[in-house]
């Protein structure tokens, strides 16, 4: 049995990845909106995003909207794939349905 990806198999990061996976491919979400959806503190979310970015699962783009700096976040292709693999692996660990 393969091991579960430790980057995703952690409660807070799993929620971050799951929320970002709901975003259609090609879209990016601004940091405050992601924070609002997850109900996490900015500091906590930053820490987890950094770890996901280091793993290559999340792309973080810093840009400007007018004069305000904005941080845009999305799952990378690799992150999407890792999430799909994680979901499949977890599903395989479920006890078979009793008949």
């Amino acid at each position: 049995m393969s091991e579960l990806d430790p980057v995703i198999h952690a409660q807070a990061r799993l929620r971050v990845v799951a929320a970002l996976s709901a975003l259609p491919e090609g879209d990016q979400l601004a940091f405050p909106r992601l924070q609002e959806i997850l109900g996490m503190t900015a500091g906590n979310l930053s820490v987890h995003l950094r770890k996901l970015e280091d793993a290559g699962y999340v792309e973080v783009t810093k840009t400007f909207s007018g004069r305000t700096p904005t941080t845009l976040v999305c799952l990378s292709r690799r992150g999407r794939l890792a999430f799909e693999e994680y979901t499949a692996a977890v599903r395989a660990l479920l006890p078979p349905p009793s008949t």
């Binding site: 579960l4 430790p6 980057v7 198999h9 952690a10 409660q11 987890h48 770890k51 599903r91 479920l94």
Partner: peptide, 14 residues
């Protein structure tokens, strides 16, 4: 599996 930090893993696959 070793956790990479203090973020605890979910208690079960379900």
């Amino acid at each position: 599996m070793t956790p990479i930090d203090e973020d605890p893993p979910p208690p079960s696959p379900a």
